[in-house]
Design a binder for these strands. Structure first.
Lengths: 106, 106
DNA sequence: ATGGAATACATCGTATCACGAAGTATATAC
DNA sequence: GTATATACTTCGTGATACGATGTATTCCAT
């Protein structure tokens, strides 16, 4: 898929991946894989950004003797997803504009 | 609207704006305005890129005594729009993933 | 006729951002 | 004991949208 098209979806997609239960880097990548593939460097950059924006919180926890960073979505993060639903209406309007056929052809 | 979300739509939206008839910078901006607002510097950057990618051709023509650059979509450009329709299926899958409700809540 | 919009295009610098490359470290399977 | 999977980190780079700024012409109101 076009890289540019992904850009606007990435952040919100990561948030969606931790929406129902806290998750960690590797698992997020796997869960997103069927929809969007992204590299580790990309994901951790995004996670750091989302943390700065207070869309999620981070907590280190031990698992099988080593530390994992678990990411938990915040109220702001949930709002981001709700806002995305609203933005989608504009996106659909753009989609219609791009794909509408020339009216006057038979 | 989120700038990031626009990114993937901009190129194809500009192509859509010249799909039915050749157009020029100022008019493209006006036609796109209801869907996506973009500055002149952004548009001309995009037009130059699309020309390099042979999605469109440029032809200067006189209008009211001064030169205008008219942009004409190519076969490659039209194919780009068709491909976009295909990509859209993936985008919709991502949208579903992001907005689907937690299954186990009543 | 004079000034200010509106039209029309161009260039430059900057900030954001996705990503590949490379690195560190541990657990598990063979 | 060696490879693979797990798990996270840092660095540098290229793409790109955009504000700022500049140039030049036409149109319109005063």
């Amino acid at each position: 898929m076009d890289i540019q098209l992904k850009r606007g979806l990435l952040d919100v997609c990561v948030l969606a991946a931790i929406k129902n239960e806290d998750s960690y880097g590797y698992k997020i990548i796997k869960d997103m894989k069927p929809y969007i593939e992204l590299s580790e460097s990309t994901l951790y950059t995004i996670l750091k950004r989302l943390e700065q924006q207070e869309m999620l919180t981070v907590k280190s926890a031990e698992h099988d003797g080593r530390l994992r960073k678990y990411y938990h979505i915040t109220g702001t993060g949930l709002k981001r997803i709700r806002d995305f639903r609203e933005e989608w209406k504009e996106i659909m309007a753009i989609y219609q504009f791009v794909t509408k056929e020339d009216e006057h052809h038979e």
